[in-house]
Amino acid sequence: MKALVIDDSRAMRVILGGMLKQLGFEVADAENGRVGLDRLRSMEQIDIVLVDWNMPEMNGYEFLVNMRAERKYDEVRIMMVTTETEMSQMQKALSSGANEYVMKPFTREVIQEKLEMLGVVVHQAA
C-alpha cells in the first residue's frame, strides 16, 4: 500500500509518515501542493493522499482541485489534514472531492480508524 503525505512542516511529515509506516504503508512525501502533484504523477501506484491545508505555493485545497481534475486518480482517496481554524472551509473541500478529514492533533488510532472507514486499511481485530 502506498501513501503520499503532503505537508510543509518537516515535523508533521515525520509524524504522519511514521504513523502510516506503522500501519504498513510505503510513504512518499512532498512539501507543498505543487511538489505533491509532481510526486503523485511520478508514482506508479498510490492508494491514499494525506494533504495539509495551509502550505506555501500551492495549498491543500488547490492540490485537491488539481488532483481531482485528473480522471486517472478518481479511485485514489484524499484525506485533508486540518486544524480547527480551517474547519469552516472543510465543507468546501469535501464537496470538491476530499474523502475524509482529520483534525490535528490526532493519534495513530484515529488515522487507522479513518483509513479503515475509507476501506484503504483492512480492519484488524486488536
Binding site: 510543509d8 512542516s9 515535523a11 508533521m12 509524524i15 495551509n54 502550505m55 506555501p56 486544524t83 481554524t85 490535528k104 492533533p105
Partner: peptide, 13 residues
C-alpha cells in the same frame, strides 16, 4: 501566519 499555524498544529501532538 503559516509559521505560527504550523507550530500550533504540531505542538498538540
Amino acid at each position: 501566519f503559516r509559521t505560527i499555524h504550523t507550530i500550533k498544529g504540531t505542538c498538540g501532538f
